[in-house]
Design a protein around this nucleic acid. Structure first.
Length: 155
DNA sequence: GCCAACGTTGGC
DNA sequence: GCCAACGTTGGC
């Protein structure tokens, strides 16, 4: 079981949306490094839900990978902002994973607080200017995140 | 709104 | 293959 951190803008799709829906397809990822991280995910992996472009930004909840290797349907949709004219049904370029809501944390763990406790080597999201929307999290960093919130680790 | 970081694109 | 221009992300 591996840990991840996945960013989304709360105005676009926040933890509340996921809580209401129960599950979601993490589609629209158009960055190869982020896509490759999703390709390495396995069912049962856990991911911290991170609110980006928020004030303040930070970790707000937890979700679980429930399906991997899903072809991202938005790449074929000409009306989608994620449409990729270079993608074909025979040779899709983008895939994604399906996630299930696990929990909303009692309080956000803000980026400021993360920076007080983690170096960029421990947790890449604290690196200034990090634009990558999906990041791996080490077991020890995941445990420290829960401890910082005063919670027992899931998983 | 600004700007740093950085991935992508295209000319050569 | 190099690199400048450009676009996007995301913090502030």
């Amino acid at each position: 079981m591996a840990w991840w951190l996945m960013k989304s803008e709360p105005d676009v799709y926040g933890i509340g949306h996921l809580q209401a829906e129960g599950t979601t397809l993490w589609d629209g990822i158009r960055n190869y490094q982020a896509r490759n991280f999703m390709r390495s995910m396995q069912v049962g992996d856990l991911a911290f839900f991170y609110h980006s472009n928020a004030s303040p930004p930070g970790i707000v909840g937890l979700m679980e990978v429930i399906e991997t290797g899903v072809v991202d349907p938005s790449q074929f949709d000409p009306t989608s902002k994620y449409h990729d004219p270079a993608a074909t049904q025979e040779a899709p370029r983008w895939d994604c994973v399906r996630l299930a809501y696990r929990r909303t944390f009692p309080a956000m763990l803000s980026l400021d607080r993360l920076r007080e406790h983690f170096s960029v080597d421990d947790l890449a999201v604290v690196r200034r200017g990090n634009r990558l929307s999906i990041l791996p999290v080490s077991d020890s960093s995941a445990e420290r995140i829960f401890r910082l919130m005063g919670l027992e680790p899931d998983g």
